[in-house]
Write a protein that binds this DNA or RNA. Structure first.
Lengths: 161, 161
DNA sequence: TTTTTAGTTCGGTATTCACTGAACTAAGTA
DNA sequence: TACTTAGTTCAGTGAATACCGAACTAAAAA
């Protein structure tokens, strides 16, 4: 298989996956994939329109979406008027921060559920309680894992600047 | 606030959250929430129709959806023809298994991305590489955390039977 | 045997939403 | 000044899909 074909297929695969996990529009997820596989020199707007085979307007909207959430960035080259796009240095941190916020939301909800059940449904299953405890422990461990990773990334960030 | 109001509000909150994280239809996510807050005696189909304020047909479809993915179960009471629904004992394991599958998919995709970039984009940023390594470590730790929790749940499962 | 109960299935509707083309803008070029 | 370039904005379209009511089914009750 040629580079182009492999790339197209992989972009599609990445797209399907991140469309659901990062809750992006189909095109945004595919652009994200495209930039995961782009050379260091990035891709221009034009190129992205061509490679993604969608309209200028959609590409514009979806690139801005990714720019706004910090997943991608653009830069310019001396003498060229075009913008070149690439993943931002922190694009992985953006995902992690998102997961982290989700988790803390989930922990809050589960606490409310617990409080409600303690007050109004005193006779809940023991088994449920045991599982709920384990699940909460899992969430907390995951949360710590996320925090640790984000901190490490921040440290590296400072080192590289 | 009355129990009913608190419950309605919390069901809504749970619904919004699980609609996105478990990728359920709006109603399925709310039914899930309703059953998180139900008494040990469960809720009958009728009650669920009434509490959720939607049609019999939608409730039927969405309860079956949750039954099929293992999140909920039903039981009957002697002398009663109705089914009563509640969360299944393993409903939390269902979420964990789902996350686990997602993670292993993500790890596979990232490996493919890495292979692609090694082959075709040799000059990728050092910083990206450092971050990618950390992110992969995070995913692996998370995966282990999931596995550990699922195993614990299985052990408890066996103990309770 | 007829009626009621407890749900299921089906066809249609309404809404959401991503995507498009076309018109537009702002900045650089001739 | 007119023209091109690089994108943006907006109104409209098409597809997906969640939900509904109505007709239906299977089993129990009368």
């Amino acid at each position: 298989m040629k580079e182009r074909e492999i790339k197209e297929q992989l972009v599609e695969e990445i797209g399907v996956y991140f469309e659901k996990t990062l809750q992006l529009t189909p095109l945004a997820a595919r652009l994200y994939g495209l930039l995961m596989l782009c050379p260091k020199s990035g891709h221009s707007f034009e190129e992205i329109v061509e490679l993604s085979q969608s309209s200028k307007s959609s590409v514009s909207v979806n690139l801005n979406l990714l720019l706004n959430n910090g997943s991608i960035e653009y830069f310019t080259k001396p003498g060229e008027r075009k913008r070149f796009f690439r993943l931002s240095k922190n694009y992985l941190k953006v995902s992690l921060e998102k997961y982290k916020n989700q988790l803390s939301e989930e922990l809050k909800i589960l606490q409310k559920v617990k409080d409600f059940n303690v007050q109004y449904n005193k006779e809940k299953h023991e088994k449920h309680k045991a599982f709920a405890k384990m699940y909460t422990e899992y969430l907390e461990t995951h949360y710590q894992n996320l925090e640790r990773t984000i901190n490490k990334m921040n440290q590296i960030e400072r080192k590289f600047i």
